[in-house]
């Protein structure tokens, strides 16, 4: 029982740090991209009144973003930051899965796997094939 408690405490610390550093890294990247974007486009006019629906798979999107970020395009660097932000809770779940496996808590291994499956579902069915 005592070692169980100790392990719970370690997991809390690791997940807490993961969330914290994940958010700060993501924000730093987004802020950098924002400055570059502002520097290049400050006098352009905004036009966000009309929504243009897109239909890009996340894999194509990640590829485009990485290519754009490599060419130091401001909006792609912001998007890279946003993608890192999305990755933080996903990493948190993957870490929980490993932690529950190590604790041999198979009920919660199943529950965590189900949540991961739902997120995967939204990745694959969020765009028209």
């Amino acid at each position: 029982m005592q070692s169980d408690k100790l392990r719970d405490r370690d997991i809390q610390l690791i997940i807490g740090n993961l969330l914290r550093y994940g958010v700060w890294t993501a924000l730093a990247v987004a802020a950098l991209g924002g400055l570059i974007y502002l520097f290049n486009h400050e006098q352009e006019l905004v036009h966000y009144g009309n929504f243009v629906e897109k239909d890009v798979s996340i894999f194509a999107l990640v590829e485009q973003t990485l290519k754009g970020a490599a060419r130091v395009k401001g909006d792609d660097i912001i998007l890279l930051g946003i993608l890192l932000l999305f990755l933080t809770p996903i990493l948190r779940i993957l870490f929980s899965l490993i932690a529950f496996l190590l604790e041999k808590d198979f009920l919660y291994v199943g529950i965590t796997a189900l949540v991961i499956a739902i997120i995967c579902f939204s990745v694959f069915f969020g765009f028209a094939h």
Partner: peptide
């Protein structure tokens, strides 16, 4: 993200 709701230039500020 895949439907284009997330506009980086609005999200950043």
């Amino acid at each position: 993200l895949q439907k284009g709701y997330i506009e980086p230039d609005i999200c950043m500020p």
